Structure formats: C-alpha cells, structure tokens
Simulated scan of single mutants.
Amino acid sequence: MTEHDGPTAGICAGRVAIITGAGQGLGRAHALEFARHGAKVVLNDMSPSVEDVAAEVRAAGGEAVAVVADIADWTASKGVIDLAVSTFGGLDTLVNNAGINRDRMLVNMSESEWDQVMTVNLKGHFAPLRHAVAWWRDQAKAGNRIAARVVNTSSGAGLMGSVGQGNYGASKAGIAALTQVAAVEFARYGVVVNAIAPSARTPMTEAVFAERMAKPADGFDAMDPANVSSLVVWLGSDEATTTGRVFEIEGGEVSLADGWRHGPPAVKNGRWEPQELTAVIADLVAKAEPPTPVYGA
C-alpha cells in the first residue's frame, strides 16, 4: 500500500478507495462500509445522488469526495483516478460497481439496448481499471511498494446465463473474463484483482425479483446490500491476496464460482470425420458434469 495519513483503526485504515456507481444500492453500501473501516473514499456516479452519499460518509466522520461523471468515458474515468491521487495522495482500491440493465428477449432487443449495457457495464469496468493500473505501474517502477486491490462486479447472469438478459449476461461474463486476465497481467505490479457475483436488493433487482427481495418482517435481512459490502471491503483490503477469482455472495453465504475448465478429451491421431463426431460428442456429453441451468430456463 502506498503511504497515506489516515485513521488508525479498521481493515482498510488509511487506504484510498474509488467506488463507481456509488449513488445508490450496492455502491452506496460499499461506500459506507469502506469509510466505516477507515478508508478515504472517492465516489462516482452519473447521478447527483452520489453527492448525498459522500455527505453521509462525512457526517459519520469519514473522508469522502464525489464526482458526477460517466465512468465509461475514457477522459472522465481518468479524471476519477486523478481526483483520488490529488485529493488523498494516492490510490489503493478500485471497486468497479457501475452497471445498468436493459432486459429484453434477444429476438426483441434493439441495437441501443445492447450497446448501452455493453458500454456502461464492460467499458465502465475497463476504462477506470486501465487508468488505475497505469498509475500503479508507474508507482511500482518508481520503487514504491504497492498493495493495490481491484474488485469488479459480475453477476450470476454472467456466470450461468439468464433468460431475458442476453446483453446484461454477456457484459457480466466479459467482466469475469476481464478479471482473470487482469489478475495475471497486473500481478507484477502488486495488484490483486477479483470479482463478485452478488445477490441483493437494489433498484436494479427489486422489480425483477420482487417477492424474493422483500424485506423480512423480522430477523436477518439476507437481501440487504450491506451484506455484500463486507466481502467487497475485505477484497479491497491488504488481507486479500487471492487473485483472479469470482466470489458469489448472498446474505451470509459466500462461495467461489468455478469457471470453464478443460474437460476430458477424445483423441484421434488424425482429423475427425464429421460423421465420426456423432458418437464422440455423445460420449463426451454423457461423461461431463451437466452445466448449471440458465436462470429462468
């Protein structure tokens, strides 16, 4: 971690964290939890409501600045990184949380509904990630110790698929793959990169899963977004050293999501004839573990 003045207590004491999509839902919960654990936070959102979240952090005794900007814009995303460095003296954690959905069956989906989701979700992860790691690389080359953390936000829709969410699922699958590649490429600079696939009650999900997302009359609220923030704060701290993984979390349940793996092959010393593959493929499928069903199938 680069050296900053800051609080002396909390798992993220003294760390500087950027949280995108911080104006509501999961992003707001992340902002409050990072601040509670001693981080100085830079909050980004397209909505002016992010200013209210920053004020909420400051009212609780934390340090926060907010910037209303399109994180998928190349110049604006660099500006968010630069703001963290100029305001708090550095950057330790990037939480890529910004995202939208435009749900539609593929046969009815418009070009704009595809493009909007890909831009916000996927480019909105890549752009700040690219600018952040450029700063960390320069710090590493200058001989400064780096213990940087990136937490990306994928989804079960990206891991297993979800009917009616082809654009959203594809963007979230891209984020999972981006996480794996970035973890390998950035390890040389001291950067740990992971992703989460969360389930929580947010403005994006409550209309789709209204019954499941309903607040309980009493007891533990498994759909409270703050449950997810506990894992995000841990992944954004010095404690997190595992890299390139995707964690699923819902309520008090956390697990690792295992991705694509090479299955047992069928081997021939030569080129397969198409007609031979009927029996070969049937045998491979019969021996393989069945895939997790697509949500909504």
Rank of each mutant, 00 (worst) to 15 (best):
M1T: 14
M1H: 13
T2V: 15
T2E: 13
C12H: 00
A13I: 11
R15P: 04
V16H: 04
A17L: 02
A17E: 00
A17I: 03
I18W: 00
T20P: 09
G23Y: 11
G23H: 07
L26K: 01
L26W: 05
A29L: 00
H30I: 05
F34Y: 14
A35E: 06
A35C: 09
G38K: 02
G38C: 03
A39V: 10
V42H: 07
S49G: 04
V53M: 03
V53Q: 09
R58P: 07
R58N: 06
A60H: 04
G62Y: 04
A64W: 06
V65T: 13
V67D: 01
V68K: 13
A69G: 12
W74D: 13
A76L: 05
G79W: 05
G79Q: 06
V80T: 07
D82A: 12
L83E: 01
A84L: 03
V85K: 10
T87M: 08
G90H: 11
T93A: 05
N97M: 02
I100E: 08
R104T: 07
N108Y: 00
E111H: 05
E111L: 02
Q116F: 01
Q116V: 01
Q116E: 14
M118N: 01
A127N: 03
P128Y: 08
R130S: 04
H131V: 04
A132D: 02
V133W: 09
W135H: 15
W136E: 05
K141W: 01
G143M: 00
N144M: 07
N144P: 02
R149K: 15
R149I: 11
V150D: 11
T153Q: 14
T153I: 06
L159N: 03
G161W: 09
V163K: 09
Y168A: 07
A170G: 06
S171P: 00
K172N: 02
L178D: 11
A187G: 08
R188K: 15
Y189W: 15
A195Y: 08
I196E: 06
I196P: 10
A197N: 11
A197F: 08
A200W: 08
A200V: 09
A200C: 14
E206V: 01
E206H: 00
A207C: 07
A207R: 07
F209W: 13
K215E: 15
F220I: 12
D221H: 10
E239N: 06
E239K: 12
A240D: 06
V246M: 03
E248V: 10
I249H: 04
V254N: 01
A257Y: 12
D258H: 10
G259K: 08
W260N: 07
R261I: 08
R261V: 14
H262I: 07
G263I: 00
P264E: 13
P265K: 00
W272S: 09
E276Q: 15
A279D: 15
V280R: 10
D283G: 14
L284S: 04
A286V: 10
K287P: 05
P293Q: 12
P293L: 14
V294E: 15
G296N: 09
